[in-house]
Computed example of a mutant assay.
Amino acid sequence: MNSIELKSRAKINLSIDVLGKRKDGYHLVEMIMQTIDLYDIIKIKELGTEDIVIKSDSSDIPLDKENIVYKAINLLKNKFKINKGVEVFIQKNIPIAAGMAGGSSNAAAVLVGLNKLWKLNLSEIELQKIGFKLGADVPFCICGGAVLASGVGEELTYIKGLHKDISILVCKPDLFVSTRDVYGGLDLESIQNRPNNKLLIDCLNREDINIVASNMVNVLETVTSKYHKEINEIEKIMIENKALGSMMSGSGPTVFGLFENKEQALRGKEKLLEKYSQVYVVNSNEKGVEIDGEFK
Rank of each mutant, 00 (worst) to 15 (best):
R267C: 14
I291V: 15
K262Y: 04
G288T: 04
L266W: 01
F295I: 09
N285Y: 15
G288M: 03
R267E: 13
G268C: 08
L266Y: 04
Q264A: 13
S284F: 08
E286V: 08
D292H: 10
Y276C: 02
V289H: 00
N285G: 06
V279K: 01
K287C: 12
E286H: 08
E286W: 07
N283V: 07
K269W: 01
G288S: 11
K271P: 09
F295D: 06
K287A: 13
K262W: 03
Y276P: 05
L273K: 15
E263T: 03
K271Y: 12
K262N: 05
V289Q: 00
F295P: 02
S277N: 15
E270A: 08
G293F: 13
V279Y: 03
N285I: 08
Q278P: 01
L272I: 09
N285M: 11
A265P: 00
D292A: 14
K287L: 11
K269F: 01
V281C: 15
K269G: 00
Y276G: 04
I291L: 13
K287V: 15
Y280G: 04
E270D: 13
K262Q: 05
E294S: 07
R267V: 11
E263F: 09
I291R: 06
E274A: 11
G293I: 07
E270F: 10
K287F: 14
E294K: 12
G288I: 02
V289Y: 01
Y280I: 15
I291Q: 02
Q278C: 03
K271D: 06
L266M: 08
K262G: 02
F295N: 06
K275E: 09
Y276K: 05
G293W: 14
V281S: 11
K287N: 12
V289L: 03
V281Q: 10
E294V: 07
E274H: 11
V289C: 07
G268R: 00
K269C: 01
R267H: 12
S277Q: 13
E290H: 07
L273Q: 15
G288R: 02
N283K: 09
Y276F: 14
K269H: 03
N283D: 05
E294F: 09
Q264Y: 04
K275I: 12
D292E: 15
Y276N: 06
S284M: 12
E263M: 09
E270T: 13
Q278E: 10
E263V: 09
G288Y: 00
G293R: 14
S284Q: 09
Y280E: 07
D292F: 12
K269A: 01
L273N: 15
L266R: 08
V279M: 10
K269N: 01
Y276D: 03
G293A: 10
G293K: 11
V282L: 08
D292Y: 06
L272A: 08
L266T: 03
D292W: 13
K275M: 05
E290Q: 14
L266A: 02
K275N: 09
S284Y: 02
